[in-house]
Structures are given as structure tokens and as C-alpha cells.
Computed example of a mutant assay.
Amino acid sequence: MKKVVLILLLACFSFSTSAFAAYTATSHDLYVGQSAQYKLSVGLWSSTNETVELSLYSKGPSGQLSRVFSTTVNIGPTTPSPVEYSVGYLSPGTYVVKGEFQGSSGSLGPVSLNQVY
């Protein structure tokens, strides 16, 4: 009886971990040298339809992250890439982008911050 319960618990745990197999991809550091309005350009790809939460963070001197922009985008095999978003006024400093993928396939990159003239 104990073996049956253990097998059922393991089966449930295996199902729950695969059902929620989200992962987060982080970009390289992005540098802003001049205060201005910026546009975020992110290459996204997925072999299946899924939802990605894109977030732009400013990176402090000791590595702490502070979110400055966030959006949710639906992507799939036929989604044009890169996607672009106006992120507003940014101060000089270091920034990183994180993409939280809800599914188990997809990639993030190339990523850039471009000044809006």
C-alpha cells in the first residue's frame, strides 16, 4: 500500500513540474550613456505558441535590479522578430532584460536599447 501511495505521489509531482516548466532568460548587460527616450528591441523565438513576460531592469552598482518596464507578449513560430517597445526616458547606467517564458521552448536575443530621435 505504501508503495502505491509513493508511486502516485511521484506521478503527481512529475506531472506538476512538467506542467509548470517556465524558465527565465536574461540578456547581457546593456549600457545607456545618455539620458533620452529609448526603444527596446528584443529578438524572440518559440517553436510553439506561448506567452513571454519581458521586463527591463536597471542594474545598480552592487548588482541589484529595479524594474523600469514590463510587458507581456504572445509569440509563436510565425511571430515576426524582433519585437520593439518604447520604454520611455532612461538615465545613464546599466540595464538588463529578462524574458520569463511560460512554456518549455523559446529563446531571447539579440537585445538592444536604441535612442529615439
Rank of each mutant, 00 (worst) to 15 (best):
G88T: 04
A25F: 03
T79P: 03
T72R: 14
S112Y: 05
L40E: 03
G109R: 02
C12S: 14
E50I: 03
S58P: 00
T72W: 00
T48F: 00
I75Y: 01
S81L: 10
V116R: 07
G76W: 01
K39D: 05
L30V: 07
P77Q: 10
Q102I: 01
T17E: 11
T48A: 14
G33D: 12
P92H: 10
V4A: 12
N49Y: 08
F15C: 09
K39S: 08
K39R: 15
S66C: 03
I75C: 04
S16E: 14
V111G: 03
K59M: 09
Y57G: 02
L65T: 09
Y85W: 14
I75D: 02
T48S: 15
S41A: 07
S107K: 01
T48G: 06
L30D: 06
F101R: 01
S62T: 15
V68P: 01
V96W: 02
E50P: 00
F20H: 12
V96E: 13
Q102L: 11
P92I: 15
Y89E: 13
K39F: 00
T79E: 01
V68Q: 06
R67C: 07
S81D: 12
L10S: 09
V5M: 13
Y31L: 11
Y57M: 02
I7P: 03
G88P: 07
L6E: 15
S35C: 10
S27A: 08
T78F: 12
V96I: 15
T17P: 04
R67V: 03
Y31W: 05
Q37F: 05
R67Y: 02
V97E: 05
T26F: 01
L54Y: 03
P110G: 09
F69Y: 15
L6M: 11
S104D: 14
S66L: 09
Y85A: 02
P92L: 15
T72E: 15
Y117G: 09
R67Q: 15
F20Y: 11
A25K: 05
G60N: 14
V52Y: 00
Q34A: 05
S55D: 05
G43S: 06
F13E: 07
T26E: 13
